[in-house]
Design a binder for these strands. Sequence first.
DNA 1: CTATAAATGTGATGCAGGTCACATGCTTTC
DNA 2: GAAAGCATGTGACCTGCATCACATTTATAG
Lengths: 190, 190
Amino acid sequence: MKAETILKDHLLKVIDLNDEQFGYVFSHFKPMSFKKGQVIIAEGDKVSCEYFVTEGCLKSFYINDDLKMFILQFAMPGWWASDYNALYNSIKATISVDCITDAEVLCISNADREKLCSEIHAVEHFFRWRTNKGYVAAQKRLLSFMNNDAKHRYEELLNTYPQLYNIVSKQLIAAYLGVSRETLSRLYHG
Amino acid sequence: MKAETILKDHLLKVIDLNDEQFGYVFSHFKPMSFKKGQVIIAEGDKVSCEYFVTEGCLKSFYINDDLKMFILQFAMPGWWASDYNALYNSIKATISVDCITDAEVLCISNADREKLCSEIHAVEHFFRWRTNKGYVAAQKRLLSFMNNDAKHRYEELLNTYPQLYNIVSKQLIAAYLGVSRETLSRLYHG
DNA sequence: CTATAAATGTGATGCAGGTCACATGCTTTC
DNA sequence: GAAAGCATGTGACCTGCATCACATTTATAG
């Protein structure tokens, strides 16, 4: 499906926009293609954009001082990704974003998003809605971390996002669950 | 300080509202007083409001099947609290909210917030801003969970919210950090 | 098609933090 | 101000998961 259509469907699920309005909104997005493994945001970068995925799969992640990776989010078509802390507060990226598979995205700058939000009330509403969703999801994940062991969280992840199983390596699943790859391996074998 | 002033300052830090507009917004909030220990939202409740704290301290928390409590958030003056999953999605509360100290809050219904958001663009902007903050904070806490041990998280909490130390019992701090009270005790003694 | 690298499985071992048990100290409340 | 009820400290023991080491299987590039 066309990137434009995917974005349009995504927005219209939440807000009403006529064709002219959507065209105007869409004109602020820049289509970009990336290859598997390409880095979209690297630690230390100035972050000026966020990305709407229309094809493929991204990950956003943090790497600590011991070079251990923690995955914040997988981003499939219809999902958004960026380092939001860096983006909203104009600071350098601490979160990186790269491509798990070849990917197509629509890129919008922070400035353009804010412009659209102030020009079109419905767009502001959309982005409030979107962050609300993200906030609730982050809280749920936090609770799951405190409450459940690795096995439980693994099953939860596969139930919630069965598509991931075929696309994402076990290592990355482990980095999302916050366990070592060895422990994850032992959860279903050994 | 008057509850009204606290809310006004809080809003005006982010958006512009003239006196008439603020008066209109404020008219949708209902002041409420609670005693220490009183429950504002109990598990299973229908959740129709969120609460802006003007005095005292609340906590929002989850209790699992083994009756173990996990604290999602402490809410001090200038903070908001509710079960947002329940509030946004019209489902029964799984998160509870109660009072750590005597407290004064301003209560606004979900319906009224949505009404104000659609009537006054700036109010919608404010609530988008607020949730963005919350989202970023939740992500940071998630990363801290994955990356840091209990001692590190304890120090982080006290650095970020030094006021908590005098108000909140060690048990509750432990429930926020996701460790047992015994382990927390051993972090600074033993 | 082969060589090189990357992902995965599996054993051995160590440790952070959980759980249970009980002692002590601090608050309410009547 | 005595009694009852919480909050905290501390020991003993247990367990889930990390880490290190190495074997094996699966991709990827030339």
